[in-house]
Simulated scan of single mutants.
Amino acid sequence: MDDPISITYQRSKLAVLYHLNRSEEDLNDAVMSIKYWIESQPHLPRNTNKNRIEFFLLNNTLDIEAAKKKLESYYTMRTSLTIVFQYSNPGTPQMKSTIGSTQIVPLPKLLENIYSVMLIKLRKYVPAELDPHWWVAAAINAHEINIQENLMLNYVLIYDLENLTLEHVLKLTPMFILNCSKMADKGLGRPFKGIHFINCPPVFQLALTIIRNLLRPDLYALLHIHSSLDSLRETFPIDILPKDYGGNEKYVNELEETWLKKYDDYKDYFDNLDVLKVNKDLRPNISLNLFGFLPFDFRNMSFD
């Protein structure tokens, strides 16, 4: 019997290829080109996951040169952006604390068969030592699992801010927001399709002011604020939304319970990610403009 995950992945891949008007042969040829290129780059990890290559290729409409830059940028971030990735392994106390304070759940069904919908809900308790970059690491961990089971043209995010407090907002530093913007733009495929907020308390206006002043206008335009669940259901089909939000999908707590088990299933995968580093001593001379990062985005970082 075929593996259900393999069937789901293949079905989602075909949907994305249909949307892009490209064939599996086109994708396979592009994957081989990327693999040959990786072998010629002494500074890059050799055991690049095929699903990751396919994700970057399809999120760059099979533009091989653009996908190369995204992969280069992805591995550079994982190596040098220690503020995010130092404790990103799900087994670390920092990640366990982060997951304990935030529900991060990719919903089972894809929007329009090509976009993954990720639901993020803050819990009331926020550990004093929590760095907001750990929220990003936890979301990227969910993404890492997701691209092993689905192939999508990036994400639509739903933030449930019912439990948002001033304590949360004060963690939204300029460095954090700019890092999030750069990562979304340079290292994780194409821009998000949309970012939606629901159950927004009055303190959210302060957060929105901070975000507005730091995000590029094109990224800020992706933000959508819903005043009610009816508004949310006008955007998302009820078959996608959990029952908590008036949909037909399982309750969020049920989905989260299933999702958290995946971190154990993918333990070896994440342990391997920990060692996928760029060897900067072997990197050919590359202009910093290839990545477009600002110097203060990174801690303990240097480019040749």
Rank of each mutant, 00 (worst) to 15 (best):
P4K: 02
I5T: 12
R11C: 04
L14Y: 04
V16Q: 04
Y18D: 14
H19C: 09
L20M: 05
N21R: 13
D26A: 10
L27Y: 03
N28Q: 13
N28G: 05
D29S: 14
D29Y: 08
V31W: 06
I34W: 06
I38K: 07
E39W: 07
L44H: 07
P45C: 11
K50F: 01
R52A: 01
I53P: 02
I53F: 08
I53H: 08
L58T: 05
L58E: 04
T61A: 13
D63P: 00
D63R: 01
D63E: 01
I64C: 03
E65L: 08
K69L: 15
S73I: 02
S73A: 10
T76H: 09
L81H: 06
L81R: 11
T82Q: 13
V84I: 06
G91T: 15
T92Q: 06
T92A: 05
M95F: 03
M95Q: 13
S97C: 09
G100S: 07
S101V: 10
S101T: 06
I104W: 00
I104T: 12
V105R: 05
V105L: 12
L107W: 01
E112G: 12
I114S: 02
I120E: 00
K121A: 11
L122I: 11
L122A: 11
L122Y: 15
K124S: 12
Y125R: 15
V126K: 13
P132S: 04
W134C: 10
V136N: 00
A142I: 03
N150D: 15
L151N: 00
L151G: 00
Y159K: 01
D160C: 11
D160V: 10
L161D: 10
L161I: 14
N163K: 04
L166I: 15
E167G: 10
H168F: 08
H168D: 10
H168N: 15
V169S: 08
L170W: 14
L172K: 07
M175D: 10
I177A: 03
I177G: 04
L178M: 13
S181P: 05
S181T: 12
K182S: 15
M183P: 01
G187R: 00
G189M: 00
G189Q: 02
P191A: 07
F192W: 06
G194W: 08
H196L: 04
I198H: 06
N199C: 03
N199D: 09
C200L: 11
P201G: 03
P202F: 10
V203G: 05
P217A: 03
P217L: 03
D218P: 01
L219S: 11
Y220A: 13
S227I: 07
L229R: 00
S231R: 11
S231T: 08
T235P: 09
P237D: 15
D239R: 00
K243H: 07
D244I: 04
Y245N: 01
K250M: 13
N253H: 14
T258P: 04
K261H: 09
K262A: 01
K267N: 08
D268G: 12
D268H: 10
Y269H: 10
N272L: 13
D274S: 13
V275D: 12
V275T: 14
K277E: 01
K280M: 11
L282M: 07
S287M: 08
N289E: 15
F291K: 06
L294M: 09
F296R: 09
F296T: 07
D297N: 09
M301E: 12
S302C: 08
F303V: 12
D304H: 14
